[in-house]
């Protein structure tokens, strides 16, 4: 591939060919120049993207660790002026809301993906659903928050469950799309093998297709969970505000790490900033655990395939 540095075995001389123009320096100056500028630009863009990422992570870790102590995990959230570091209720809230959203969105999304991949295939209904799932992926998260506010909160009030509903709406199309992709990777050979044994389609799907696609389905769902766990906007008007622990999913308002970060960032007080950095560190840790878990599952999947 490399044009600039041709290497030629020194062995048999080929006197009839003049190879001097293969030396890099003979490439015309503008072409060489353009090629180098392009290469430099490509590397520069990588560094441009790497810089903010590194800065954010370093700062979050450095400032976040200042806030982290036993109190951070166990204490109630203090008033905004206080220098206390409690963030426990938001950690519990994040876990509850995300778990509830997962329980709602993943089964529904996987079932819909099964429809698209096993039943609808190239039909009109499936094409429409696929298109709408794409549209739904693009619905802004704040709109999902407003939607759940109008359809749920106005009738039943704020709760962790209302927030979970909003997150589930955001996760659903992501789970559907990745799910369909994973189900389609299952070879038709396996479907035929099962059907040829006299298995009903529904049973074939449950015993062959879904188990074969399970690592992929898990990985896709984990990524959707990771994204949902970091969402703020859909929760602003749906779960309310609270500074103490509320492990009840359905009753009473709640709070989550992203909202605490948001509040801390808006606050003029040093203590609130410190808590926000701490919450950011905890949130990134949670999100990355899911992201890496997804990668781990994917990696295991590919070794399984090659065995």
């Amino acid at each position: 591939m490399s044009v600039e540095t041709p290497t030629r075995p020194a062995a048999a001389p080929l006197p009839t060919y003049d190879a001097t123009d293969l030396v890099g320096a003979r490439l015309s100056a503008p072409r060489r120049y353009k090629n180098r500028v392009a290469t430099a630009c490509v590397w520069a863009s990588v560094i441009l993207a790497l810089a903010p990422l590194a800065l954010v992570i370093v700062l979050v870790v450095k400032n976040g660790l200042d806030a982290m102590g036993v109190e951070f995990f166990t204490g109630n959230i203090p008033s905004t002026r206080s220098a206390a570091t409690g963030m426990g209720p938001a950690i519990v809230g994040t876990l509850i809301v995300t778990a509830a959203a997962t329980v709602m969105a993943v089964p529904l999304g996987v079932l819909a993906a099964i429809y698209l991949s096993e039943y609808g295939r190239d039909g009109k209904v499936a094409a429409t659903v696929r298109f709408l799932a794409g549209v739904m992926t693009g619905v802004p998260s704040i709109v999902m928050g407003l939607f759940v506010y109008t359809i749920w909160v106005l009738n039943f009030g704020q709760s962790a469950f209302a927030g979970a509903l909003a997150l589930a709406c955001l996760m659903l199309p992501v789970v559907i799309r990745s799910g369909e992709e994973m189900l389609r990777l299952v070879p038709d050979d396996l479907r035929n093998a099962s059907l040829a044994l006299g298995t009903r389609k529904s049973r074939m799907i449950r015993t062959v297709v879904v188990p074969s696609a399970l690592p992929g389905l898990t990985s896709g769902s984990l990524l959707a969970v990771a994204r949902a766990a970091g969402e703020t906007a859909p929760l602003l008007f749906t779960i309310g505000a609270i500074q103490t622990f509320n492990p009840n999913l359905f009753a009473g308002t709640n709070t989550v790490l992203p909202i605490q970060i948001y509040n801390g960032a808006l606050s003029p007080f040093e203590g609130a900033h410190t808590r926000a950095w701490g919450a950011a560190l905890a949130l990134i840790a949670i999100v990355l655990v899911f992201t890496f878990a997804a990668r781990l599952v994917t990696a295991r999947l590919s070794t399984d395939r090659h065995r």
């Binding site: 040829a196 006299g198 009903r200």
Partner: peptide
């Protein structure tokens, strides 16, 4: 579905399920 149970089929490419040997036969 009943027909296929009485009239089995072996395919061009070997297509065992990604399960254990035992579970393949027991399927």
């Amino acid at each position: 579905v009943q027909v296929r149970r009485r009239i089995g089929m072996v395919f061009q490419r070997p297509n065992p399920f990604p399960k254990s040997v035992y579970d393949n036969v027991a399927y």
